[in-house]
Simulated scan of single mutants.
Amino acid sequence: MDDTTARERLESMLAELDRSIGVLRGDPVPVADRSAADAGSDLTDSDRAQAMLTVATTHRSAIVAALKRLEEGTYGDCVDCGRPVPEGRLEARPEAARCVQCQAKQERRR
């Protein structure tokens, strides 16, 4: 993937994530009369929103890091071993920082 295409895709992904994060951070609409079931449902929704916010924020960080690698001229190189990240991987995940082998090692460490 050429740098221009990568930048466009990453910036589009970043804008979409920023919109999603804004929605997830929005204040809930107060409701005067709520039953205990409604309160429990709100808590579950709040927990779900917090989990989604955590994932979105982590993904946003990966995209910002990829844009920085583009600026530095290292985009497409594995951050661990320095080998090229396969084109197909970058097509599927433009924010990918590692080659398949290094990503697998990273995931095994978790």
Rank of each mutant, 00 (worst) to 15 (best):
residue 109 R to G: 03
residue 21 I to F: 04
residue 64 V to G: 07
residue 9 R to S: 09
residue 66 A to E: 04
residue 81 C to P: 07
residue 62 A to L: 13
residue 43 L to D: 09
residue 4 T to S: 15
residue 22 G to P: 10
residue 52 M to Y: 00
residue 33 D to T: 04
residue 45 D to C: 01
residue 91 E to A: 15
residue 99 C to K: 09
residue 20 S to H: 01
residue 68 K to V: 10
residue 40 G to D: 01
residue 17 L to M: 09
residue 69 R to A: 12
residue 36 A to V: 11
residue 87 E to M: 11
residue 104 A to T: 14
residue 18 D to L: 06
residue 8 E to A: 13
residue 70 L to T: 05
residue 21 I to V: 05
residue 2 D to F: 03
residue 88 G to P: 03
residue 105 K to H: 13
residue 102 C to S: 08
residue 86 P to R: 08
residue 6 A to Q: 09
residue 97 A to N: 07
residue 31 V to W: 02
residue 27 D to N: 04
residue 22 G to C: 09
residue 95 E to R: 04
residue 89 R to N: 09
residue 16 E to D: 09
residue 5 T to P: 03
residue 16 E to V: 05
residue 42 D to E: 12
residue 82 G to S: 02
residue 97 A to F: 06
residue 78 C to I: 10
residue 1 M to W: 08
residue 19 R to I: 08
residue 76 G to H: 15
residue 78 C to W: 09
residue 58 T to Y: 00
residue 78 C to D: 12
residue 105 K to W: 06
residue 17 L to W: 03
residue 56 A to N: 12
residue 52 M to I: 00
residue 55 V to I: 13
residue 44 T to N: 10
residue 66 A to Y: 09
residue 17 L to T: 05
residue 12 S to M: 04
residue 56 A to R: 10
residue 87 E to V: 10
residue 107 E to T: 06
residue 28 P to V: 08
residue 54 T to W: 00
residue 86 P to K: 07
residue 57 T to W: 00
residue 84 P to G: 06
residue 10 L to M: 10
residue 82 G to N: 04
residue 75 Y to F: 12
residue 67 L to I: 13
residue 106 Q to Y: 12
residue 95 E to L: 03
residue 109 R to T: 03
